[in-house]
Amino acid sequence: MASHIIAQAQAYLPNIPLTMVSQGAEALVFTTTTHPCLPVSEQTDTTYIIKYRPSKPYRHPKLDAQITKHRTISEAKIMHKLGQLGIRVPRLVAVDAPKGIIWMHFVGKLLANGEMSSLKNWLWYLERVSAPGSATDAGTARILTQVGREIGRLHMHDIVHGDLTTSNILLEQPHTDMNDTDWEPVLIDYGLGSYSGLPEDKAVDLYVLERALLSTHPVFSEKYNAWVLEGYALGHAEVGGKLGGKKCTETLRRLDEVRMRGRKRSLLG
């Protein structure tokens, strides 16, 4: 597995033990228990995530440096901002933008089949492994509504995620007394995120998720999406009250337009 990239990360982070967790599309994710700023005597055994965006050999060096720096900075900024606003995100620890490194607190845990608890893995687990019907029961409905609610709250603060897929939604159990079917969603990976108040950008955000659901979880995608949108309205109402409701309708109306605009859509139905 891409050993020279890991070696590069290790060279940027000397004397820090790294454990590789996953190789995403644009970043490697490591865990470590070392805090970057605390002196040795005050280190605890808390787990941190180090997200490293390696330089991509296929990109022109100038383009590559620009993209790495821009995405790392905007991800860190947005995560920090969301943390202040009280939206559940991994807590930011440190950033090194030119090298593409972000430290943050660990979220998520392992599922029963040993996979990371992303929404995608969890839904696949329910659809393939678990008892029939569990992919569409009330527990699933609750979690997908929660997902929608988180997105709604994000959009109410005029922040768009830019890359909503089921891989970019982690499930965690913040309280120790929560059982196996009880999860709270956390949105991660804000590398393509931006600030925008336009209904258009928010609608595209929802559309990207809708398409991701359709392509990754084709059997129940309609149900899933309906639950997400239900939660989306809830999130708006919670943050903005009546004004939130208005903004929500505006975005959803725009979503219809975005759907119609997709390329080579069948004209029937």
Binding site: Q23, E26, K56, Y58, H60, L63, D163, A212, T216
Partner: peptide
Amino acid sequence: QECLYAMLVEITERAMAHV
């Protein structure tokens, strides 16, 4: 070419990681 193809390769990589 550099810009467009970098975008294509990136979305392909995203899809590979996703599925």
